[in-house]
């Protein structure tokens, strides 16, 4: 194997394992977020769901990368989760606040 091919293979291996380890850590954080969403009251549940949406979105985006598993449709799901998740959290937080006032 030439030096260039070895360097490219080394970079691919390191990136693959790094993304995999990050996804495992993110999954653990997602489990904590699910626990928070299921145990807490309304606003805490909203926060847990928001954190889980983030973790799921980033993991799906990493899965969609051609350097990893190249699952193309996961990219659209990830973008939807990340964008709609954060916007929805802000909207529902406003609703909780105004709902309690009325």
């Amino acid at each position: 194997m030439s030096e260039a091919a070895f360097l490219s293979a080394l970079a691919d291996t390191v990136f693959f394992w790094a993304a995999l380890v990050f996804m495992v850590a993110a999954t653990a954080a997602g489990l904590g977020a699910i626990r928070m969403a299921l145990k807490g009251e309304a606003v805490t549940s909203l926060m847990g769901v928001s954190a889980f949406t983030t973790v799921a979105g980033v993991s799906l985006y990493l899965i969609s990368l051609p350097e990893l598993f190249n699952v193309g449709f996961a990219r659209d799901t990830a973008i939807a989760l990340l964008v709609v998740g954060s916007v929805g959290t802000i909207l529902f937080a406003r609703l909780f606040r105004t709902g309690e006032k009325s």
Binding site: L10, A11, F15
Partner: peptide, 24 residues
């Protein structure tokens, strides 16, 4: 640069683990 990106991904792991411990 790809090895650097792997370093960024590795650097994200300890805060995620710390956040997991904190949530539990």
């Amino acid at each position: 640069m790809k090895i650097g990106a792997a370093g960024i991904l590795f650097a994200g792991v300890p805060p995620m683990i710390a956040a997991t411990i904190g949530l539990f």
